[in-house]
Each structure stands twice: as C-alpha cells, then as structure tokens.
Amino acid sequence: MRGSASCGVAGPEERGRPGGEAAQGCRLGVGEPGRVPAPARPVGGHGQSAGQRELEVLRLVAGGATNREVAAGLFITEATVKSHLLNIYGKLEVGDRAAAVTEAFHRGLLVPRVTP
C-alpha cells in the first residue's frame, strides 16, 4: 500500500483551504485524523445522492488507489469497496472507474487540488 500517496483531489468542503487539511484528507495512511464529512449531494439523473463513504471511495480511486488499498485505508472489505463502486457507477451512469472519476470531476464532486 502506498501509505503516503495522496489522491490529488479535494472535495467541495475543502475549497479555499491552503494545503494542510485538504492535503491530508485523501491520504491512504492508517490512523490519520478524520475529517468532517461532506453532506450527500445529488449525482444521478433521478436525484440519487452519493453517500459520504461512496465519495471517500471515489476520491481514493481518483488518486489511483486499487480496491485493496481503498479497503485498507477505509477499514472496509474489498467486497464493500466493489459494492460502493457499483453504486457510484449506477448513480453517475458510467461503466467503469475511469469514467466515474471523469464524470465526478465534470459534476464537481471531485475538485482538483491546487498545489502551491
């Protein structure tokens, strides 16, 4: 597992924050302090909302994490990661993880992190 790898994206709740907390938010390291969760927001064509955990999974996937790395970083099973990804695919109306990340950026669910 890439313990110090950061996902390179920040959620909308982190806009305007200089490096610190935004940079810490997506790391895969174990035991790092948690963050205040972002509220669920509509993502699908029928008003479906992405849950907090689904967005956490999506952020890590956007950073290049494997299902195994996501599971270890979030203390969940790989089967749960797969389940979250399938839910995300359905809500974003896409067929794979690359398309999900792209669509999430287009919809503003993931925001590129600006590095100083």
Rank of each mutant, 00 (worst) to 15 (best):
Gly8Glu: 07
Ala10Val: 10
Ala10Ile: 12
Ala10Gly: 10
Gly11Thr: 01
Gly11Ser: 03
Pro12Asp: 03
Pro12Trp: 04
Glu14Ser: 12
Glu14Thr: 11
Glu14Val: 10
Arg15Met: 04
Gly16Lys: 06
Arg17Met: 09
Arg17Thr: 08
Pro18Met: 09
Gly19His: 13
Gly20Arg: 15
Ala22Asn: 03
Ala22Ser: 09
Ala22Met: 07
Ala23His: 09
Ala23Trp: 08
Ala23Tyr: 06
Gln24Trp: 11
Gly25Cys: 10
Cys26Pro: 01
Cys26Val: 06
Cys26Asn: 06
Cys26Glu: 05
Leu28Ile: 02
Leu28Asp: 01
Gly29Trp: 05
Glu32His: 13
Glu32Val: 14
Gly34Phe: 03
Gly34Met: 07
Gly34Leu: 07
Gly34Asn: 07
Arg35Trp: 10
Val36Thr: 09
Val36His: 04
Val36Ile: 11
Pro37Leu: 02
Pro37Glu: 01
Pro37Gly: 04
Pro37Val: 07
Ala38Glu: 06
Pro39Gly: 05
Pro39His: 07
Ala40Asp: 08
Arg41Met: 05
Arg41Ile: 00
Val43Gln: 00
Gly44Met: 00
Gly45Glu: 10
His46Pro: 08
Gln48Gly: 14
Gln48His: 11
Gln48Thr: 15
Gln48Asp: 12
Ser49Lys: 15
Ala50Asp: 01
Gly51Arg: 06
Gln52Gly: 13
Gln52Val: 15
Arg53Ile: 08
Glu54Lys: 01
Glu56Cys: 05
Leu58Tyr: 08
Leu58Thr: 05
Arg59Asn: 05
Leu60Asp: 01
Gly63Met: 05
Gly63Asn: 08
Thr66His: 09
Asn67Ile: 10
Asn67His: 15
Arg68His: 13
Ala71Asn: 01
Ala72Cys: 15
Gly73Glu: 04
Gly73Ser: 14
Gly73Gln: 03
Gly73Arg: 02
Phe75Trp: 15
Ile76Thr: 08
Thr77Arg: 11
Glu78Lys: 11
Glu78His: 12
Ala79Glu: 14
Ala79Ile: 13
Thr80Asp: 13
Thr80Leu: 14
Val81Arg: 02
Val81Ile: 06
Lys82Leu: 12
Lys82Asp: 13
Lys82Ser: 14
Ser83Glu: 12
Leu85Asp: 02
Leu85Ser: 06
Asn87Glu: 14
Asn87Leu: 13
Ile88Cys: 01
Tyr89Asn: 04
Gly90Cys: 07
Gly90Leu: 08
Gly90Asn: 04
